[in-house]
Design a protein around this nucleic acid. Sequence first.
DNA 1: CGTACTATTGAGCGCTCTCAAAACCAGTGG
DNA 2: CCACTGGTTTTGAGAGCGCTCAATAGTACG
Lengths: 256, 256
Amino acid sequence: MSQSYPADVIPPVEAVDCTCSACSMALNCLCKNLDTGLKSRLENEVLRNRVVNRGQSLFEIGESFQRLYAVRSGSVKVYSLIDNGEEQVMGFYLPGELLGLEAIDRGVHECSAVALETSSICEVKFKKLEQLCVAQPILQQRLHRIYAREIARDYAMLQLLGRKSAEQRLANFLLHLSRRFADRGYSAEEFNLSMSRHDIGNYLGLALETVSRLLARFQDQELIEVKRRHVRLLKHQALAVLAGEPVNPVARRHYH
Amino acid sequence: MSQSYPADVIPPVEAVDCTCSACSMALNCLCKNLDTGLKSRLENEVLRNRVVNRGQSLFEIGESFQRLYAVRSGSVKVYSLIDNGEEQVMGFYLPGELLGLEAIDRGVHECSAVALETSSICEVKFKKLEQLCVAQPILQQRLHRIYAREIARDYAMLQLLGRKSAEQRLANFLLHLSRRFADRGYSAEEFNLSMSRHDIGNYLGLALETVSRLLARFQDQELIEVKRRHVRLLKHQALAVLAGEPVNPVARRHYH
DNA sequence: CGTACTATTGAGCGCTCTCAAAACCAGTGG
DNA sequence: CCACTGGTTTTGAGAGCGCTCAATAGTACG
């Protein structure tokens, strides 16, 4: 599984300093820039580290909600089961992203989460985190921000599923992945998909064959190069056009 | 606009006591069961009441984020603009529901909100609410719950758009509306749609003609009666089957 | 080299969209 | 009272996107 593809060049998880001080995952990292007292309380009482292999689950549907999970390396698939029993992929999570929020409302996980590759996961005890938040406005603000981001993410996804064609969805998916990799210091042009065509299709509301065909078409149009799970984006702009995004980097929609 | 249809039998807004103490909208109401000191601070410093007419907006895309909005009576449509400039309906809000959460992440409204009929709205100053939360764990918990509900709502919607047929979507929509009306003390069988076919279609990712055709089909099948905006649900169970919900009220999926 | 899994490619069909016209409804003004 | 207008909804016809079914190909692994 671990070939020497670009996005895979991460230090082996055993070698990583697992305290939060060493966590570089910017915005989502709760501990960043906290005073040392608070930081060490967080690290000791709230956080815990864990390595999971491909296919192992972090939590399962129906499990009682205890923790949130932050991906430190690797990637995770979150899915729910719909009425007839089949999977519905709700999202893929990359390093620095937080999952498990869906369980807060009812106190029970509505989704399952499995590692798509060997991954390092930071677990956050939610109850304790909430307790700490009471006395720590800064922490509380960060938690708010995490909620808010998740809501914003969901809104974007609703637009995608509600109104866009298969082509737009896939172009969007690739660009979004690319940006997330770039934000994390990986290449924005070249990366590996840790998820199958089936998972991608499921996530985007498409048949896996449609995903495969569209990737082939994008390649014919010389927008990307794709071989199995390895992808290289050749023309971001053109993809953005396909995705239905505003392209002109100057005339971006401006709020206030 | 204000005909004497079942769901319209609400007291005229002027007559309503506008303090939060009088707000009966259960879960979402931040003030419920607070000690009187805190309650009056909330009511005086944080909350404000307002009546809007059909077509008036509560906030617009690009406006800086100051407040959350709770519907007290009437209904509100929330929509964003997609790249080409057309509307994308993100949701319809009934009494007791809270909107504006989408703006928290960036501090700017990503959506616009307009009243679908004359409505009474409770405005919540977000900054002040956050400040009060710092000292008030109970308030903070409620705010968390509000976030969590929104996320859960979005997840359900993602499933709907990603995986379900037009028929399933519309059946789901009707049942969901019905349940929300019922929760608010209105009839679960008979109600008025305050939104157009166009809005419904937009919201569900369908063409307005498809919505119209399906409503006609449901009526042919004697599942509902529909005349313009007035709807009566005749067979909840059968609709639930169409919606793809687990039907057997005993064998409901059980978590823990 | 065989097995299992994943991905590609092809053919045909059906759901839902688009385009178009007609019907319906509420409001306005003669 | 009726005609006119603008908006919404219904209904019809046809086309196309994306699905399903099915066969083939590629890859990993024992």
